[in-house]
């Protein structure tokens, strides 16, 4: 059944609304020197998948997830050895791509919270910014998403 959903806004409006917050987030994640490139990469990736978005819900969380992935890619590119080391240590945890898939069935807010927390190790303060909510609400969304996943047998 089709549901009445908000149509995706023109990209210009989406970009202007989120660019400053995303840039601030990337400065914190990859540093001032690399933030410009990461910023362009984030919004270029957003542009590429923009039309395949099913609806306009949680665009902010969506673009933060992309930015978080760009930051991880940047980190791996910069320090291939450190990244390998990291993947050994975190072997028992699902990689972020897999996590995004596993969390796919969660309500959008919980899904973004879980992916940003467990996929990208974001602080709750950043998750709150991504969700446009309080830090407390970000914590709650994360833990309720995790409970839901556990009930489905996913361990994190």
């Amino acid at each position: 059944m089709m549901e009445a959903v908000a149509t995706i806004p023109p990209f210009e409006r989406f970009y202007v609304e989120h660019r400053d917050r995303v840039f601030g987030f990337l400065v914190r994640r990859v540093g001032r020197d690399r933030a410009d490139d990461a910023f362009q990469e984030t919004f270029l990736r957003a542009l590429k998948s923009y039309e395949s978005l099913a609806h306009a819900g949680n665009l902010r969380a969506w673009v933060f997830t992309i930015a978080a992935r760009v930051a991880v890619d940047d980190f791996r590119k910069r320090r291939p050895t450190a990244a390998e080391h990291e993947s050994v240590v975190e072997d028992s945890r699902p990689a972020y791509a897999e996590l995004e898939h596993l969390a796919g069935g969660l309500p959008p807010k919980e899904r973004a919270a879980v992916v940003l927390r467990y996929g990208y190790d974001l602080e709750y303060s950043d998750i709150a910014v991504a969700l446009g909510s309080s830090e407390e609400a970000a914590r709650q969304a994360t833990s309720s998403g995790i409970r839901r996943l556990r009930r489905k047998g996913v361990t994190l």
């Binding site: 995706i8 023109p10 990209f11 210009e12 409006r13 970009y15 923009y50 039309e51």
Partner: peptide, 17 residues
């Protein structure tokens, strides 16, 4: 701004200045 929504409906949402 008023022109952006009709443009998006007609040609696609990837409308950018």
């Amino acid at each position: 701004e008023h022109d952006l929504d009709p443009l998006a409906r007609l040609f696609g949402a990837k409308v950018l200045r």
